[in-house]
Lab assay of single mutants.
Amino acid sequence: TSSHKLRLYERDDYRGLMSELTDDCACVPELFRLPEIYSLHVLEGCWVLYEMPNYRGRQYLLRPGDYRRYHDWGGADAKVGSLRRVTDL
């Protein structure tokens, strides 16, 4: 099985509160109590970021690497509604 891990930060450049995720999350704002995510670091696996909860809205593919600001993943703003692991490519 492949492993997945990413870290979410409330501010750009990996500042502020950090939360780690290793499984799908249908509602990021509810789980982490963060209305917006300004940076993230994908440590393992690929993920799909959705701008709205319950895997809706615009989708962004996140490969392992650094995303210091939301425009690094192509986002128009810092809204992160849900995240899902990519298990098949």
Rank of each mutant, 00 (worst) to 15 (best):
R11T: 07
L62T: 02
D88Y: 05
K79G: 06
Y9Q: 00
R58Q: 15
V42N: 00
L61I: 14
V48F: 09
S19F: 14
M52F: 14
C25V: 11
R68H: 05
R58D: 06
R56Q: 13
Y9V: 03
H71G: 11
Y38L: 13
I37Y: 11
P29V: 11
W73L: 03
R33D: 13
T22Y: 12
R63H: 07
K79N: 09
L62N: 04
R69A: 12
N54R: 07
V80P: 02
T1L: 12
R56M: 12
E10K: 00
E51A: 09
V28R: 01
Y14M: 06
G57T: 02
R11M: 14
H41I: 08
R84I: 06
C46H: 10
E36N: 13
F32Y: 15
H71L: 12
M52R: 12
S39A: 05
R85S: 06
R58W: 02
M52E: 14
R33E: 14
V80E: 02
R56L: 06
D66L: 10
L31F: 08
S2L: 11
L17Q: 14
R69N: 14
C25W: 07
E36W: 08
R7H: 09
S19D: 10
D66W: 08
Y70C: 10
D72K: 12
S2R: 09
C27W: 02
T1D: 07
A78G: 14
D72W: 04
G16R: 06
S39Y: 09
P35R: 13
R69K: 15
V48S: 08
V80D: 06
A76V: 14
P64L: 02
R15N: 12
D13C: 14
L43E: 08
R68A: 07
T22G: 13
G75D: 02
L21H: 11
V80F: 06
M52S: 10
L6C: 04
L49H: 03
R33P: 13
L17A: 14
P29I: 08
L49R: 02
L17S: 14
R7T: 06
V42T: 02
P53A: 10
V80H: 00
D77T: 13
T87Q: 13
